[in-house]
Simulated assay, not measured.
Amino acid sequence: MKKLLSVALVLLMAFTLIGCGGGDEFPTRSIDLIIPWSAGGGTDVAGRLYAKYTEEALGQTINVLNVVGGNSAVGAAQAATSEPDGYTAVLLTYDILSVEAQGLAPISIRDFKMINKFSVQPTALVVHKDSGWETIEDYRQAALADPGGIDVAVNGEGAVWHQAGVLADREMGIEAQYIPYNGSSEQVAAMLGHHVQATYISYTSVLQHVEEGTLVVLGMMTEDRVELLPDVPTFKEVGYDAVLNSWRGIAVPKDTPDEVADVLREAFKAAYDNEEYQTMAREALIDGDYQAHDEFQEFLVESYDQVYDIMDELGFAKPEK
C-alpha cells in the first residue's frame, strides 16, 4: 500500500510540474499572426516581413492569417477572443482606434496586451505641381481666400487621412472640402487627373510621382522630417501642431500571461533590431518606429482621445467616449 501511495505521489508531482510550466517553455508550436487587411497590401507586406525575422528569434513558424472586414474590426475581434496563450497575435493599425471611437464594433484597445509598435505610415499633404503651391502657407492662404473651395481626396469618410486633414484644418484655421475615395490608388488617380486640388495620404503612395515632379509634398504630419524627403518640413516646425499618422503594432489577447507576452516582446524586438530586417524594410518603404509595450500602450490611450475628438467634430463619434 505504501508503495502504491509513493508511486501516486510521484505521478501527482510530475503532473503538477507540467501544469506549472515545468515542461517545455513557450513557444512549443507555431504561432498565428492575424493581419486584418487583405493579402498583398502595404500592411500585409509589412507584417509578413516582420514575422519572417521574428520566426528566427522565436525558433517557431509564424502563420499569417488575413482576416478582413469592418475596417480591421473582424480580424481584431477574432484575435481578442482567441485563447490567451500566446499562440495568437494580431497586427493592429490606427483603424482600431477609429472603429472604437465610432462604436462600429464591440472591440477596444483595452481588449489587448501590447507587444510593440514597429512601423509608422507618415501622412503627407500633397498637391499637383500645376497648383503653384510650394509651401504649407501657400495652401493655407489659398484656403483662407476660398473657404470650403479646395477639394481634398481622402481614403474614405472618417478614415485616417480624413482625420488628418480635419486636424490640420483646425490648426491652420481653414476649411476644406473632403472627397472620399476607396484607397490610396484612387486618391492618386484623382490628383493626377486634376479632379481634386490636394490629398492627405501616405507619402510612399506618391513617392514615384513626387520624384518625377508631377506631385509636390508640401508638408509632413510627423514629429520629425522623413528621411526620404529631407527638404519637406513638418507642420509642427512651421507652427501648426498637427501630428497624425497611421502605424502598425503587435498585440495579444489581454489575459495572455505576462511571462508569455515577454517572450514575444523579446522576439519581436530582436527582429526589429536585425540589420537585415532593417535593410529589407527600407527597400520596401516600410518606415520603422519602435515603441516598447508600455510606451505603445500609453501612446494608444493618448491617441484615442485625439481620434474621438476628431470623430466627434465630424459627427461620427459614439455617444459615450
Rank of each mutant, 00 (worst) to 15 (best):
residue 225 R to F: 03
residue 156 G to Y: 03
residue 106 P to W: 11
residue 142 A to L: 07
residue 121 Q to A: 15
residue 120 V to C: 05
residue 202 S to E: 08
residue 138 D to E: 07
residue 167 L to T: 09
residue 127 V to G: 04
residue 119 S to L: 08
residue 176 A to L: 14
residue 123 T to D: 09
residue 192 L to T: 12
residue 241 D to R: 10
residue 123 T to I: 05
residue 172 M to C: 07
residue 148 G to S: 12
residue 161 W to L: 07
residue 243 V to E: 13
residue 229 L to T: 06
residue 240 Y to V: 10
residue 158 G to K: 07
residue 220 M to H: 09
residue 168 A to G: 09
residue 138 D to N: 09
residue 227 E to T: 14
residue 226 V to T: 03
residue 205 S to K: 04
residue 206 V to D: 12
residue 163 Q to L: 14
residue 129 K to P: 00
residue 141 Q to S: 11
residue 244 L to W: 15
residue 219 G to C: 10
residue 188 V to P: 06
residue 196 V to A: 04
residue 106 P to E: 02
residue 114 M to V: 02
residue 205 S to L: 11
residue 161 W to M: 10
residue 196 V to G: 03
residue 224 D to A: 14
residue 121 Q to R: 14
residue 180 P to E: 02
residue 232 V to P: 02
residue 170 R to F: 11
residue 231 D to T: 15
residue 147 P to A: 01
residue 139 Y to V: 04
residue 182 N to S: 15
residue 116 N to K: 05
residue 122 P to N: 11
residue 235 F to I: 02
residue 154 V to Y: 07
residue 118 F to G: 01
residue 241 D to Y: 09
residue 215 L to K: 05
residue 216 V to S: 04
residue 109 I to S: 03
residue 238 V to D: 02
residue 197 Q to M: 12
residue 209 H to E: 13
residue 229 L to C: 11
residue 128 H to C: 00
residue 238 V to Q: 06
residue 200 Y to P: 01
residue 147 P to Q: 05
residue 220 M to F: 06
residue 194 H to C: 03
residue 107 I to W: 08
residue 111 D to F: 03
residue 216 V to I: 13
residue 162 H to S: 13
residue 129 K to C: 00
residue 188 V to R: 10
residue 225 R to P: 03
residue 177 Q to K: 14
residue 143 A to E: 03
residue 216 V to A: 01
residue 154 V to E: 04
residue 193 G to N: 15
residue 188 V to E: 02
residue 152 V to F: 08
residue 110 R to Q: 13
residue 241 D to L: 08
residue 159 A to N: 11
residue 182 N to G: 13
residue 143 A to F: 00
residue 125 L to R: 06
residue 176 A to M: 11
residue 174 I to A: 03
residue 118 F to K: 07
residue 114 M to K: 10
residue 153 A to S: 13
residue 109 I to W: 07
residue 169 D to A: 08
residue 131 S to F: 08
residue 151 D to H: 04
residue 191 M to F: 03
residue 189 A to R: 13
residue 214 T to V: 14
residue 164 A to Y: 01
residue 134 E to S: 13
residue 228 L to T: 15
residue 124 A to L: 03
residue 240 Y to P: 03
residue 122 P to Y: 04
residue 233 P to D: 12
residue 120 V to W: 00
residue 108 S to M: 06
residue 193 G to K: 12
